[in-house]
Amino acid sequence: MADVMQEPLSEELSNVTVGTPTVIVDDLHIVYKVYGAANKKGNAANALSRIVRRQGRPEMKEVHAVRGVSFVANHGEAIGIIGRNGSGKSTLLRAIAGLLPAHKGAVYTNGQPSLLGVNAALMKELTGERNIVLGCYAMGMSPTETREKYDEIVDFSGIGDFIQFPMSTYSSGMGARLRFAISSAKTHDVLLIDEALATGDREFKKKSKDRIMQMRESAGTVFLVAHNLDVIEETCNRVIWLHKGKIKMEGDPQEVLGAYNRV
């Protein structure tokens, strides 16, 4: 049988150079603790009696979000991850990004995968201009790089004069566009996108799709989590269907999406 490197890609994307693996996920298990999931009344007397009886906090629960997932992602691939709410999609992305520790198994990566998550660093009280600078620095860009990319980001976001207003005045679509524009300004080897393309109008969706394609061609790897299956069908060459933390199906987008839609 063929080597892993010659893993067949779907026909329409065969022009993309298939490179070496960039991300290897090996029997990954993720368990995390959740606070504040109490069903009992959370009053002070209860808390005191727990301390006296030396019980742990009952509102702390363990969630086994990812249960033994393995796959190999190569250069130039765009992998869509689908599944119902709570199937472990976002957790898997965070684990690939190295932001959650593996309970068992491992994630091996080439370089530093980055989650398209710059919005956490932005401040809605500040203007778009300031947020662009702040976001670029948060991703580790230098002032020179930031200045070079600044106009491109403004252009790409397409929000025009609103760039001088605080982000709190933006519509949700405008905010999403600016965030995507900022986070895609940096070249990433492995980019993880979690539901970032859900908002935005038609034109912006097309632009962001082109951007993802462009990244694939420059031999990066893109992971995309979305509930909007059209986006996945149009941009991805492989789809992983997660169900209750396990891979239910994996492969060609049309087949997997077809099976997913029948459920």
Binding site: M1, T20, P21, I24, S70, A106, V107
Partner: peptide, 27 residues
């Protein structure tokens, strides 16, 4: 679950070896 590995006729453990061969590191 291990489609890629099985496609190459590899056992599950060899994912770690594959990672090492391409110089991939734990995050």
């Amino acid at each position: 679950a291990v489609a890629d590995a099985q496609a190459g006729g590899r056992a599950q453990e060899s994912l770690a070896a594959l990672a090492e061969r391409y110089g991939l590191r734990r995050a």
